[in-house]
Nucleic acid binder design. Structure first.
Lengths: 222, 222
DNA sequence: GATTTCAGAATTATAGATAATTCTTTGACT
DNA sequence: AGTCAAAGAATTATCTATAATTCTGAAATC
């Protein structure tokens, strides 16, 4: 059982399953059967069980006592909840990160914003977006806070991927640029205010469906 | 193996271990050996393992890959971190709970405040204090937010018990009363502002040691 | 005398097996 | 024909056992 990386088996399994849940490959309500997952990864029940518990802690799965574990469902209410928690916590993190932000970090964040604007698909955009947000809050050096924010990002990304399945058009992210501009001039509070609005902004946006019609899709930014 | 309650075994084990960690019975850095715990609860390794993962998710334990799991250490920096996260999240919760607060709930919260003032020991005070905070935020009906707040409360309580081991004097909690007064007159924002200061207030307070001297102990309220 | 190395013990992590519970399907009865 | 009940299959949860890794201690060498 040559573990090429030092990553422990339950962590590996939970990480891969999390990717599938976030990407929408595993749909909400889908059952996660431990034997099936076990044989897929060539492992036994025990590590799979621990992986499930990890997913549950992240809010990506729910486990009913003797009835197995399912991919967590999420409704608009929970999306709003996650967005508001993100707003509250990322603002807190940014306030503490502010004094430790260097020009190099801000340049990297700007590069991430450009990468987001030029993204060919949602996946690439999400990756760049997350990179931006992580860059500007990481210097707060509050591990517990950053871990919580990461989990919330995962939940956000999940919703994002479920909204835009196929059609997607990149557009320039003005909020990111405004945040960077404020940070470059040392206006941390101004940047935090924009960030709060930016993360929390949830509206609806008409999207062309495959059939040619339009439907309303909730749009989350950030 | 008569489970009198419907509580699942790993949950039961993790709950009891959490109590020990929070109360200080299990000191920071203490090793949690899975066999020992297993024999104590008359269980096997597997449920114990899952209980450990739960504790890790709550931030009460840390697990090094092949070297076992220990009770999480905590320094002043983390205490501050937890306090600030609590301030941010409880304020968010209170804003949403505000419109749904009834007179009955506020009366119950006032009763909890009185119970806190008359507490004979820290443990009773913490219990009443947690009851107060939970009462005023629960009506927000945001399960993920409330779960996060609960975990942060556990971390706070842990610090509280480590600070006041034996000597303890109850005092009237003016902040709680001010929060209630604001809520009774519908001033949710005012209550939220007091709550933020209240939770975040970390100062130092001289405490008589067993030897008769005094030492500085960081005091967390809330 | 100090350091390094090797061996034994303890502990963690995984695998295989067993018991208990739930879901499903089939059959009988109303 | 519809509904309820019971038996079988599938799945979860736990236990016992095995393999792998790390820690501890002592002995040997520098």
């Amino acid at each position: 059982m040559a573990n090429e990386t030092s990553e422990t088996l339950p962590v590996r399994i939970s990480r891969i399953l999390a990717e599938r849940i976030i990407s929408g490959q595993l749909e909400p309500g889908a059952r996660l059967r431990q034997d099936h997952v076990a044989v897929e990864f060539g492992a036994s029940h025990v590590p799979v069980r621990e992986a499930f518990q990890r997913l549950e802690a992240q809010g990506l799965a729910v486990s009913e006592p003797r009835r197995g574990v399912r991919v967590a469902a999420f409704d608009l209410r929970e999306v709003r909840e996650v967005a508001e928690m993100r707003a509250a916590l990322e603002v807190l993190a940014l306030r503490h990160a502010g004094p430790h932000l260097t020009r190099a970090i801000l340049d990297e964040a700007e590069e991430a914003t450009r990468a987001g604007d030029n993204s060919p698909d949602v996946r690439a955009w999400e990756d760049a977006n997350r990179r931006f947000h992580r860059l500007i809050v990481t210097p707060c050096a509050m591990p517990r806070l950053l871990a919580a924010i990461d989990d919330l990002h995962a939940a956000s990304a999940r919703f994002l991927f479920s909204a835009w399945r196929s059609d997607w058009e990149a557009r320039t992210d003005h909020d990111h640029r405004a945040i960077l501009a404020a940070l470059r001039t040392g206006q941390v509070e101004e940047a935090a205010a924009i960030l709060a609005r930016h993360v929390q902004w949830i509206g609806s946006k008409p999207v062309r469906t495959a059939a040619g019609g339009t439907r309303d899709v909730f749009a989350i930014q950030g």
